[in-house]
Design a protein around this nucleic acid. Structure first.
Length: 511
RNA sequence: GAUCCAGUAGCUCAGCAGGUAGAGCACAUCCCUUUUAAGGAUGGGGUCCAGGGUUCGAAUCCCUGCUGGAUCACCA
């Protein structure tokens, strides 16, 4: 990298780096630094009376310096939070040489540098818990200036908020915006909560192929790649449903997987090309059982994260307390759109759509028309958790037909804040019916529906060996995380949301 | 994909009857031993996203492009 491309501050930091080396200090030492406590633990447990934490070591990023001659206050930020440190020249420079304080600390250390300090904890006149430093060591020099975000009385000054900057340099976002870390910690805690529940039921976490010869289990456009040795196309999975069901065929009675799925479709605040779905399949259950299970799961996740079932989302308060409302799709359309679609054929549904001012096109079949009515007129009203049950058969080629109505399927979705969070079936295990449903998908595909499902012959073969009755569930983990962490976009709950690659000039600059 | 908005210092932003740039923080030099958005003084730093056009003159007006955001469409 040519120094002519560096900003003044970057040049100064490189000069400081050289100066540090010249003083015989290794700016990137190899040996461990013995951290004895976290900033959080000190702040939580320190008491003046107990006089605890009188010899501790902490490490982290230097996040602020307030120099007042031969004494200074500064801040260290570790993985848990920040603590103020008090640095006095006479303490860190016990002999006559003041270099460590005057030159190294005051001039050569910058905001963003990692340092380790050892000392004792006290409380300043202003009442702040502070570490009085006796020894200081540089652990890693930072060469780029970190944005300095300040805060007073709850007001944040100069917060880094440009979304492009935040998503492209998430590492900086995490250092500088403390709330961001908590979002991701909560996301992980949420997944822990689900996993713990599944394990407590004795279900087995499994892994199934990401690279699939036939991308099945959902209606979506896949990413295609190529395997050189096999000389065959492979697809990144759009769902793992068909593989998990094969495991149910194989005798596992409860399996689940947190699955990274990939869909070659649009990107926006709700969609990222790769995203996480939980899928779980349980033998000998049906979709009614699964609704109870989902209620338990959601209530537990909410309480594990927030200690309550009431979750703030935007200006809403969402209540995950059991039981959730249950309503069939037909009843929901009757209630919110004022139309009874029972027994309507495709033409009459088209008439309904026209009357309700819903945009449709010729390629839409009965299932899609009903879905449009639901999406336009019903879904926006559904803020609190609600199960929508019994979808039309043509929308659900992997779902068992309804025990009472062959036009419907035993399927439900959980809608929260007008968005689908869960999708579940009584799984179709009749291999003959499944073959027919696939063939109908093939017809749709021949009509031009590029998302119609492929026929997976091996999956049919598996069903022909016999699959026990089972209930299956898919949960959009990113969307659930959005709700559980009160975030408006999927980019805010993904560490590294997909972005257009940076320009070559920028990329070269990063080399 | 459509429409709208935005891109100015490391960060947050101002500047737009057109006269080639400014603030706060950060950075540099100096003063200051319990401060806390520390303070005081002085100073450096910008291909004003890119390219074209109008003009004597463009950060400012026009066109094209790039990147991002919002809304809608499409899609789970």
């Amino acid at each position: 990298m040519d120094s002519i491309d560096l900003s003044e501050q970057e040049v100064i930091r490189r000069q400081a780096l050289n100066e540090i080396r010249r003083l015989g200090i290794d700016p990137y030492p190899a040996e461990l630094f013995p951290v004895s406590v976290s900033t959080e633990e000190i702040k939580r447990n320190y008491s003046e009376e107990a006089k605890n934490y009188q010899d501790v070591s902490i490490a982290g990023r230097l996040m602020g310096k307030r120099i007042m001659g031969s004494a200074s206050f500064a801040e260290i930020q570790d993985g848990k939070g920040r603590i103020q440190i008090y640095v006095k020249r006479d303490d860190i420079c016990p002999d006559d040489d003041p270099t460590l304080y005057n030159t190294v600390f005051k001039k050569l250390l910058d905001i963003g540098d990692f340092i380790g300090v050892r000392g004792f904890v006290f409380i300043t006149k202003m009442g702040e818990i502070t570490l009085h430093v006796k020894e200081m060591k540089l652990l890693s020099k930072s060469l780029r200036p970190l944005p300095v975000v300040k805060e007073k009385d709850g007001t944040v000054y100069d917060a880094v908020k440009d979304p492009e900057f935040r998503y492209r340099r998430r590492y900086v976002d995490l250092v500088v915006n403390p709330g961001v870390r908590n979002i991701f910690i909560k996301r992980t805690r949420m997944i822990d909560s689900l996993r713990n529940l599944f394990n407590s039921y004795g279900y087995l976490e499994v892994e199934t192929p990401v690279l699939q010869p036939i991308p099945g289990g959902a209606a979506a456009l896949p990413f295609v790649t190529h395997h050189n040795t096999l000389d065959t196309p492979l697809y990144l999975r759009i769902a793992n449903e068909l593989y998990l069901k094969r495991l149910i065929v194989g005798g596992f009675e409860g399996v689940y997987e947190f699955s990274k799925d990939f869909r070659n479709e649009g990107m926006d605040r709700m969609h990222n090309p790769e995203f996480t779905v939980l899928e779980i399949y349980v033998a000998y259950k049906d979709y009614l059982w699964m609704m109870d299970f989902v209620e338990e799961m959601m209530e537990k996740a909410a309480t594990d994260l927030h200690g309550t079932t009431q979750i703030p989302y935007g200006d809403q308060l969402i209540n995950f307390e059991r039981p959730f409302r249950r309503i069939t799709m037909t009843d929901a359309i009757r209630e919110y759109a004022g139309v009874d679609i029972t027994g309507m054929d495709e033409d009459r549904l088209r008439g309904v759509c026209r009357k309700l001012d819903i945009l449709i096109d010729k390629t839409m079949g009965k299932g899609k028309l009903i879905d449009r009515i639901f999406g336009e007129k019903v879904e926006p009203n559904l803020i609190q958790p609600v199960f929508i049950m019994d979808y039309p058969v043509s929308m659900s080629p992997l779902c068992k037909k309804h025990r009472k109505d062959p036009e419907l399927t035993e399927r439900f979705e959980l809608i929260v804040n007008a968005k689908e969070i869960c999708n579940a079936y009584t799984e179709l295990n009749d291999p003959v019916d499944q073959r027919e449903r696939f063939q109908e998908q093939l017809k749709l595909s021949e009509k031009g529906d590029d998302e119609a499902m492929y026929i997976d012959q091996d999956f049919l073969r598996a069903l022909e060996y016999g699959m026990p009755p089972a209930a299956g569930l898919g949960v959009g983990i990113d969307r659930l995380a959005m709700i559980m962490t009160n975030q408006p976009g999927i980019q805010d709950v993904l560490f590294f949301p997909q972005m257009r690659p940076e320009k070559p000039t920028e990329a070269e600059d990063l080399m």
